[in-house]
């Protein structure tokens, strides 16, 4: 019995070591494109910082990777998460959206922030520094209302 358990453990550990070699996606781009949200609407610097700090990890082509993101299978989960987030809304490619889609997205961003659904609570749990306070929320909402 002990032997089986030991074998099981060894196989498990080898697997854990093995998956560390799975190549990870790297969501990083050196150049910020003209289509980036900040240029499309001339977003003031203080708001750009809030967006970068609280949204861009999952909703842009530049993710800031924490140390634990270099461990599998955490990275695989994270890559999947970023992929989904970018599909829904990609601030780096906002300018390439049709006018209709831009309008939809501005509305959805407003709703999500207003209702406190974004940033995701599960994300904030690990990134408390990404929390947006009420005055930041107000300034984002009034800016979105202006460009809508």
């Amino acid at each position: 019995m002990k032997r089986i358990l030991k074998r099981f453990l060894i196989v498990g550990l080898i697997a854990l070591v093995g998956i560390q070699f799975i190549p990870a996606d790297v969501n990083k781009h050196a150049v910020i494109p003209d289509a980036d949200f900040r240029y499309v609407y001339d977003v003031p610097d203080n708001l750009v910082n809030i967006l970068k700090n609280s949204c861009y990890d999952c909703h842009s082509n530049n993710t800031n990777y924490p140390w634990y993101s270099y461990i599998q299978p955490i990275r695989l989960m994270m890559d999947h998460h970023v992929e989904e987030g970018k599909e829904e809304l990609n601030f780096s490619e906002f300018g390439n959206y049709s006018e209709r889609r831009k309008r939809n997205k501005l509305r959805s961003i407003t709703e999500q922030i207003e209702k406190g659904k974004m940033p995701l609570p599960s994300y904030l749990w690990l990134h408390s520094e990404a929390t947006i306070n009420q005055s930041q929320i107000d300034s984002i909402l009034s800016f979105l209302n202006e460009v809508k």
Binding site: Q20, D34, Y39, S69, E99, K102
Partner: peptide
Amino acid sequence: SLILASCGNNSNTENGSHHHEEGMEHDHSN
């Protein structure tokens, strides 16, 4: 393996993390 994995990925991200020169000539056509 953890060290290996983290080193490998670290160098990847550092390569990509150069800052953008905030260009002024962006298009306002929108």
